[in-house]
């Protein structure tokens, strides 16, 4: 699940991709807060949110089917907790009469609430991640006053996780081709050594990275890029999100 990033989608050219990342972050946060703070979504609210998000995804020329499938990945996990609600409300009764009773209905509403909110919020986050290049996202966080040590951690993760993950993959392939039938304890033990091995390699890579940074004039802070500005389009985007969130949360 971690491995699927949205990097390829962030290079699409569209009005949404062109917006300042700060505006997109603010709009996404507002929208998700609106979704999360409301009681279980009513049909009208769900319709409003769905049309807004699908509209934005369409303007951004994103593959909507893929985004829907990807965002639906939260559902199985959310469902394990969400399905407890009807049980709690039916007084622990497992039979159909209990679960279909009117007082279990409140529980089913909670189930719907959790699942719909999880799906809508995940979809909003995916639209953000798929329409913003990671460098822009990081620069925006920095301009939003996130401490730069933290932004540096984020940018190094974004930069190197793919490299280290492919190194991990080749270590595992090497392990599997030398010892194809490992199982149980032996596998766990070699996984530990494998993790240690990758640790040492990454540490040495880190030393080389730091020397490279020093030789390029690193003085303790990453250079800031001040591209992008808040214009009318950004204001419109954030206001739309704010009004939708307010409508959903307060209506």
């Amino acid at each position: 699940m971690h491995a699927t990033s949205f990097e390829s989608l962030t290079y699409i050219l569209s009005p949404i991709h062109g917006l300042d990342a700060r505006a997109k972050i603010a709009a996404t946060l507002l929208l998700i807060c609106g979704i999360v703070l409301t009681p279980p979504l009513r049909a009208v609210e769900a319709l409003l949110l769905a049309s807004l998000m699908l509209g934005v995804a369409a303007i951004a020329r994103l593959p909507i089917g893929r985004l829907l499938r990807r965002s639906a990945a939260v559902l199985p996990f959310a469902a394990t907790i969400a399905l407890l609600a009807p049980l709690q409300h039916s007084g622990g009764s497992w039979n159909a009469a209990g679960l279909a009773s009117s007082w279990a209905g409140g529980g089913w509403m909670i189930t719907w609430g959790i699942l719909s909110k999880a799906w809508f919020s995940a979809f909003a986050m995916i639209v953000l991640a798929a329409s913003t290049r990671s460098a822009d996202l990081l620069a925006a966080l920095r301009r939003l006053k996130v401490p730069d040590v933290f932004v540096m951690l984020l940018s190094f993760i974004a930069r190197y996780v793919g490299v280290l993950a492919s190194q991990l993959r080749s270590l595992r392939i090497a392990l599997a081709s030398r010892a194809p039938h490992l199982s149980g304890r032996a596998l766990l033990r070699s996984s530990g050594s494998l993790a240690g091995n990758l640790f040492v390699r990454s540490y040495e890579r880190g030393e080389r990275i730091y020397q490279a940074m020093l030789s390029r004039g690193y003085t303790g802070t990453l250079p800031a890029s001040a591209a992008g500005r808040i214009g009318p389009a950004e204001v419109l985007f954030v206001m739309t999100a704010l009004l939708t969130a307010a409508a959903v949360a307060l209506y």
Binding site: H2, M152, S155, Y160, V161, I209
Partner: peptide, 11 residues
Amino acid sequence: VMMAVMAALIF
């Protein structure tokens, strides 16, 4: 800087 590379490693 090393800590940042280690963050990528943990991921």
